[in-house]
Amino acid sequence: MGRFKDAAKYEKTIFAVISITTFLLIWYLVTKDTELGKVLAGPVTVFGKFFKSFTEPLGTHVIPGHILWSLSRVMVGYVVASILGIILGVTMGWSRLVEAMFRPLFEIIRPIPPIAWIPLAILWFGLGELTKYFLIALATFSNVTMNAYSGAKSVDPVLIGAARMLGASDSRIFMTIVLPASVPHIFAGLQIALGSAWATVVAAEMVRSSEGVGWVIITGQDTNNSVQILVGIIAVGIIGYVLAIMMRQIEANLCSWSERGK
C-alpha cells in the first residue's frame, strides 16, 4: 500500500513541476522580444523584481511587510466573523426558533458579494481600517454561518437519541454531539471563507490604503508599472495557496476521526 501511495505522490509532484515549468516557459517565450512583451513583462523580470522587493521597499514597505499588513487585516475580520458565524450557524441548526428568525434575513443578505458593500462601508466607517475589517468580516460571515448551519442540521438523529438514552441533557447534547458533528462542515466553511476573505482584502486595499498587497497592485496601475502589478498578483497567489494548505492541515489534525479527515 505504502509504495503505491508514494508512487502516486511522486507522480503528482512531477506533474505539478511540469505544468508550472511549461507555463513559465510559454510566458517567457511569448514576452521575449515580442509586441506582447511591451505590455506584459516576462517572468524573469517579474520574479526578479519580486525577490528584489524583499529588500527594496515598494512605497513604504518591503513585500513581506505588505503581505503582513494584508494578513493582519484579514485576521481581524476573519476571526471575529468566524466566531460569530459559527455561533449563529450552529444555533440556527439546533433551534427551530432561531432558524425561523434569522434564516430568511440571512438568505437575502447572503448572495450580495462583499465588494458591493464597499461604498456603504466607506460612508459608514470612512476610509480607515474599520471599513476593511467590515468587508472581510462580511465575506467570512456568510460562508461560515451557512456551513455551520448545514452541519448542525445534518447531525444524525440516531446519535442524538443515543446521547439522550445515555442520560445527556440538552446543553450537553449541543456541546458534545451537535458541535463536534458539525466540525467537518464548519471547516469546509472556514476554508472557503478564508479564500474569499483574502480576495476581499485585496479589493478593499485597492479602493484606498497606503500599504498591503492590494495597494501594491493598484499603485502599479497608477504608475503604469505592470511589473509591480504582477509582483502584487504573485504575492496574492502564493499567500492564498499557503493559507489553503494550512487550513487543510489543521482540518486533518482536528478531524482525524472522520473518514474525510484521513
Binding site: L159, A162, L166, A168, A181, V183, W257
Partner: peptide, 25 residues
C-alpha cells in the same frame, strides 16, 4: 440502554470516550 442496529457510536470520540459518555453525563 439501547444497542443500535447501525452501532450509532460517536465517531469523534475514542472507544473510551464512547463507553464513558453516559457516566460523564
Amino acid at each position: 440502554g439501547v444497542v443500535y442496529q447501525a452501532t450509532a457510536l460517536f465517531p469523534w470520540l475514542t472507544v473510551m470516550g464512547n463507553v464513558e459518555y453516559g457516566l460523564k453525563a
